[in-house]
Amino acid sequence: MAAMQNADAVVELTNVRKEYSDSTALDGVSLVVRAGEAVAVMGPSGSGKSTLLNMIAGLDRPTSGQVIVHGSDLGVLGETGLALFRRRGIGMIFQFFNLLDDLSALDNVALAAQLTGMKASQARARALELFGELGISSRRNIYPAQLSGGERQRVAVARALMNRPALLLADEPTGALDSRSGEQVMDLLLDLNQIGQTLLLVTHDERLATRCATRVIEVVDGRIAREHSMERA
């Protein structure tokens, strides 16, 4: 466990490189994300932004460099350690929702808490609470295939928030949604950040970045090319 240099830093990347057999996805990226920030990572396709997200989520390991999240050096954690880290430390939202088709919306959300050992009844109660907050209570017993894209992403957000993670990671959260549903999800993320939820978004969508982010980082060819703070729209 490495000591954090910045007391309020939630994420700290130091000179992170990620090489694949025929390419370099990240080339010496250093980044700090502080508590309460909403950071949008932007860039063209293949620039390395999803790889960056994977490093922070512990879904992939850097070739060199250090990734520290909530004070934990992810490089020293084994697969089980990373799973426990993801379980408690982060929530993830995906472009294609990634809900289990054979579980109802409520059970999809409760699942995240049940993995921590919470009883089914308690997990469902907590999930219902989130459904209420996200305005989808009436859809709790519906299966993913019968939900609209916006509803599915709200369910995915509820699942990501289930274990009250300090960091919420979103990979193109509006990329598969129509404009109206996308707007709803943007509002939701904005609301979450405004009540203190730290966010890190990977997106192509400038409107999402403008609307939700407090800081935008632009990644080009595996490096951070530009970085600037934002005034929310």
Partner: peptide, 13 residues
Amino acid sequence: RDLGMLKSIGMTP
């Protein structure tokens, strides 16, 4: 995809 998602939300190997 389901297994990847389960791992992403904290299911251990």
